[in-house]
Computed example of a mutant assay.
Amino acid sequence: MTTKNNNDQFPKVQGGGSLILAWQVRNKHVLVVGGGEVAAGRILNVLNADAKVTVVSPSSGLNPEVRHRIANDEVTHIDRVFQPSDLETLPPSDGPPDMVLVAVDDPAASTQIWKLCKEHRIPANIADVPPECDFYFGSVHRDGPLQIMVSTNGKGPRLAASIRKWIGNQLPAGVGDAIERVGELRSKLRRIAPNPEDGPKRMRWMTRVSDAYSWDEMCGLTDEDMENLLTFYPPSKVPQLDMLKAMRGGWTPEEIDVFDGSFGFSVVA
């Protein structure tokens, strides 16, 4: 017999949510059924994630944005209605799609495609029909590598968009650029400390670096600054920004300590 532990130190389970993930669809094959406004938004979402997209829709149902994608060879277009065989072989890969997005004004046809996707074990999203979705499209704020998604589990898309706009307005300018610089620094760090056993130290040092500098300061780091910053990794130190600026031009920390200002040398470039 077990006794329930009501210890409040552990978070309580809140059912009814969705598992929000960053789904990597780079080079995956996505089938979009439909060519209207909703389909255009879906197409842009997956193209932004570097997916390979095939659009199945009669030309008469294409809106201007989807026509633009087709004309610029950003997607593959099949000029007809959906066929069940599309879930088995589809250009350009001539194989089954990895994901299906349905955006057509035909509830019966949409449900049929959903059922077929279940039979083929292909994840699918049926626009505006939450019960027939393996996943939802939230409202996303994008700033370079930064992506923030707001989801209402399909219950209030308009409200999600309003919340997303509010969050975006609260973020400081240059956040995306700062994250880009952090990413570059991490890549450089992996090159000088590539071994798996270096992982914990890398993570601790990058955490300290991220906490040490503001968004604006991170954006302002030059390539030379980052190379100089990496010299502090072996002893697990993080210098002040003034030190990094003073090291520009080939100065070493030891030289800067000697010329500390009493001889007319300024440590702030």
Rank of each mutant, 00 (worst) to 15 (best):
M1R: 11
M1H: 09
T3E: 14
N5D: 15
N6I: 07
G17R: 11
L19Q: 04
W23M: 10
V32Y: 06
V33W: 09
G34V: 05
G36D: 04
I43T: 12
D50I: 00
A51S: 07
K52H: 12
V53H: 11
P58F: 04
S60K: 11
V66W: 10
I70A: 01
N72M: 07
V75P: 00
V75F: 03
R80L: 03
Q83G: 00
S85K: 12
D86N: 04
L90D: 04
P92S: 07
P92H: 08
P97Y: 10
M99T: 11
V100Q: 08
V100K: 11
L101I: 08
V104G: 03
D106T: 04
P107A: 02
A109E: 08
A109K: 09
A109R: 12
W114C: 04
N125K: 09
I126F: 04
A127M: 02
V129Q: 15
V129Y: 06
Y136E: 11
S139A: 15
V140N: 10
D143V: 09
G144L: 09
L146V: 14
Q147L: 10
V150H: 06
N153A: 15
G154R: 13
G156E: 08
P157Y: 09
R158M: 11
A160H: 08
A161F: 00
R164N: 08
R164H: 04
N169S: 15
Q170D: 04
L171H: 08
A173Y: 11
G174L: 08
D177N: 13
I179Y: 10
I179W: 08
E180L: 09
S187C: 04
K188G: 01
P196K: 13
D198R: 03
G199H: 13
M203E: 14
W205V: 02
W205I: 01
R208C: 00
Y213M: 02
W215M: 10
D216N: 14
M218D: 01
N228M: 05
L229I: 04
L230P: 06
P234G: 02
P235S: 08
P235Q: 05
S236C: 05
K237L: 14
V238W: 05
K245R: 15
M247R: 06
P253D: 04
E255K: 14
I256A: 07
V258W: 09
V258D: 11
F259T: 01
F259G: 00
S262A: 11
F263A: 13
G264I: 12
